[in-house]
């Protein structure tokens, strides 16, 4: 069976004027459908960089990224937008919600770009908002919510289009232990429902919930496929 995600010899360099900062130095990863993968590593090791490339939010300097048997570097920009919209849900450490839109509208955003009718949008958004337990906060603006609630809105937005892959970059980094725990439970449940979940974390307890941990140090995978 072919893997959902396959990354070969991936490198990423950031150009800052004359200086080139290497962030990924030849990464190989394979992730199968339905896995719950935790990515761990020290600060600055390249975790976020890798996640952004996997989420089609950034492009690699060199190397191969195969998503669902398609080479991402060969995909046109328009199609990439559609992949971000349909196949990938991304959850950031800093939530990245639109401050002037209420919870309902924020969650509807991916559905808008998918071209759903207003009725369908409302229905689907209500459903995932209920799943993350925020039905009574539908009309609130993000600024009126706690950190944990905001992250749940972000998760609702990430899953509303029913993507196969959910990427989360330190989703509990800005939360206290309690609400962080709740968030992780949601990710576990999503994985049980069949979503492939890849999560970046510093927390060993979080890593325990994953069925595989990938360690990354200085832009290199340390113990790749060993569980």
């Amino acid at each position: 069976m072919a893997s959902l995600i396959e990354v070969n010899d991936l490198t990423k360099e950031y150009k800052m004027g004359k200086i080139t900062v290497p962030a990924l130095n030849g990464v190989d990863i394979e992730i199968n459908e339905g896995e719950f993968v935790a990515i761990m590593g020290p600060s600055g090791s390249g975790k976020s960089t890798l996640m952004h490339i996997l989420g089609c939010l950034d492009t690699a300097t060199q190397g191969e990224y195969i998503l669902n048997r398609e080479k991402v570097s060969h995909i046109k920009k328009k199609k990439l937008a559609s992949i971000r919209n349909q196949r990938i849900g991304f959850v950031f450490q800093t939530f990245n919600l639109l401050p002037h839109l209420n919870v309902q509208k924020n969650v509807e955003l991916p559905l808008m770009y998918a071209g759903y009718s207003k009725k369908k949008r409302t229905k689907l958004a209500k459903k995932v908002i209920a799943e993350v337990g925020l039905t009574d906060r539908c009309k609130h603006k993000p600024s009126e919510l706690s950190g944990g609630q905001r992250q749940r809105v972000a998760i609702a937005r990430a899953i509303v289009n029913n993507p196969s892959i959910i990427l989360a970059d330190e989703p509990t980094g800005n939360l206290d232990t309690n609400s962080g725990g709740d968030i992780l439970t949601i990710f576990s449940e999503l994985n049980l429902k069949g979503h492939t979940v890849i999560i970046v974390t510093h927390d060993a307890a979080v890593a325990k919930r994953a069925n595989r941990v990938i360690h990354i140090v200085d832009g290199l995978i340390e113990n790749g496929d060993i569980s």
Partner: peptide, 16 residues
């Protein structure tokens, strides 16, 4: 620009 980043992340095309 940040807002545009968020919209691009959830699947907006340049045209949108």
């Amino acid at each position: 620009t940040r807002e545009i980043g968020i919209r691009l992340t959830v699947g907006a095309r340049r045209r949108d």
